[in-house]
Design a protein around this nucleic acid. Structure first.
Lengths: 215, 215, 215, 215
DNA sequence: GATGAATGAGGCTTCATTCAT
DNA sequence: CATGAATGAAGCCTCATTCAT
């Protein structure tokens, strides 16, 4: 109430940054507690605004949820898709590149939590799930499928059931993302993701590369 | 008011079977909607009883939740542990046996949903998460570690970082369980688990088996 | 279920004693917790029967409550009324006799709690309150009024406003009954009722006796 | 839907006055029905707000109850204590002053009901009872004890058992407060408190004053 | 008669949403 | 725009009462 209090710059928090602050706060809380157990008041307070302000930017809780999910589709897949087009090295190297890049740009960031969110809430929000499935899962599947097909065509990978190999292939990275937002909290130390991914790639490549041609 | 109506009793005494019926109903709904979004009235009605009856068997919602999770520890892990002790074939065959058995006795049953539940709710119920981590995750890890060590000792598997290989190894099976309770609903057809596991085992065994000795 | 269990004498708890056991249990609990906060299951269990049995003897909770209050009208007032008719000593002695007798036969017994019950619940049960007022309060008032009138007529007590003196006169004894069922629980030691009543009678008689005639 | 309807706001912001309005409403209802039988919805509606508003100011029902009791300790005791220190007239006059003042500032106001509340609920809320006992009962006892000692020291009152005389002395005033909130409702006319207190003081002073010195 | 499992109305409490300020 | 007091629907839980055994 004092004059001193009022001296804070009034323009410090610009209007246009509010929505993303709210989305960030919501992401963290939705991931931690789930959709239903997250209170909008806590979202607002974590974003540094009042409860009412939230409704200036989002129609309701579900709308905020959708915004969170939409914001979670970082353009990483697009980049990966481009990489598949342009890459000139071996398919093994490409696979390694994509997977490590995935971790670097998504898995290791706060966005990883969205995967947990989708897993947890997809039954409650079929529409959002469908959208995520189409725009993320299918595209990622296709991208990996192309890499595998590229490797098979080059004789680098063995013949394989590409569709299902892709499903298997994605599992360990997805689990790595889920882990830190779930049971990982029970472990004394966080997972060593580099070590995890190394082991994973070793198995994966060992499991899909064609045996060396006999002399 | 009809004579027919009067003939059927308004309720039955079924003290023995009620708890498991309630737990089954709760499992299905917790898995589908999550803990917070599941209404106890719906649990009760799915179990064919009234709201109040639930409280004859469980103190409150959290107690019911615990019961659901506890009931999910089917003695399958124990069986698998015994299998590891007794198995006489190759380690590859043992691994295949365990993984297919896992699917048969857990993954393919309603109990699989508990995994989704744990992933979704572990942050809200640290105590339950800790218990699950100790009694399920740790034990499963150890069991798989022993299988891998067995294979390495026999020269059947290559040298490896056992701890982290176990983590990677479990991911595809866990994801298979999660899938059917989440985004799997977006797909036109359910996953073909046999096909999935076949591909998985092919990669896994290809990835961890020692290269054939050179002549 | 064993034969041994069945050997307990079947006639040990006779049917006709049930209601009073239930009423006793209910009295204690109603007094301690109040009408609304008393659970019938606890009443039943304290009386050593099951919840259903209670309904064999009382229509419902209110009926039980009425029975408790009715049972609380011990015939002490009637005795006191007779005493007033027959007593041959001084009015002071009669007053002392009645008040000490009151304590002995009512105030010091579990029935004292009913006073607290009536005070607490009279607004919720106007019908019962009216009945208590008529059958207990009015009668007690009349009895004390007669004693006072007797004393005044004999020149033993001074002239007084009998109706209101009676009200004042009853207060300390009623409070003594209330105390042990309320704030008395906060005190390290129970009230010394003899000492209390002595002081009370000293004040009372000092306050209503006529001054000694001047010579 | 009429224009008139739209003109009156559905609710008002009255942060300052809400708590005391709620406490007043709660006092009246707790006194009338007791703690357990009072519905918070009724408290809210009597205070002119909705159920939820109550929870903006009080954590829960018990917290509201505590607030009601706390609000009941009007600073009257403090005033009385000061009066005892400063008073210059006779001890009889002081006693009369205090007792009539008590009625004027507490007994005759809505706060009187709290006494009934404490009597009724002290066993259910031992903590509140203890607090009331310490801060109200003990202090009032001490104050009256000082008055009595003052009178005895001055030779105005006879020798007496001060502690227990105080207990007896307080009973009629307390009963007067209880009466109007309990069985008083059964009487056609309310008690005439002036007449009651006159009679009371006459007895009391007659009972504790020293006999006039003989010439 | 006696039991206690089952019922369901009702009260406490939370929280998404609205709206006066 | 921003706030946060106010709302009220909805969910958890209790417990008086019923009734199959």
């Amino acid at each position: 109430m004092s004059a001193a209090t009022k001296l804070e710059p009034r323009w410090e928090r610009r209007k246009e940054s509010r929505p993303s602050e709210l989305v960030d706060a919501a992401l963290a809380l939705f991931v931690e507690h789930g959709y239903a157990a997250t209170r909008l008041e806590e979202v607002a307070s974590r974003a540094g605004v009042s409860k009412g302000t939230l409704y200036l930017y989002f129609e309701n809780k579900e709308d905020l949820f959708k915004a969170v999910v939409r914001a979670g589709i970082v353009p990483a897949i697009e980049q990966a898709e481009k990489m598949v087009d342009c890459f000139e090295g071996s398919s093994s190297a490409l696979l390694r590149e994509i997977i490590l890049g995935w971790w670097q740009f998504i898995g290791g960031t706060p966005h990883a939590g969205i995967t947990k969110l989708i897993i947890s809430e997809s039954r409650n929000f079929p529409e959002i799930a469908a959208f995520w499935y189409e725009d993320v899962v299918i595209r990622a599947n296709r991208m990996f499928a192309r890499v595998l097909e590229r490797g098979v065509a080059a004789g680098e990978f063995r013949q394989m059931d590409v569709d299902y190999t892709v499903r298997v292939l994605m599992a360990p990275v997805i689990m790595l993302m889920l882990w830190s937002h779930s049971l990982g909290a029970c472990e004394p130390a966080p997972v060593d993701s580099a070590r995890y991914l190394d082991n994973y790639l070793q198995i994966l490549l060992g499991g899909i590369c064609a045996p060396p041609a006999k002399p």
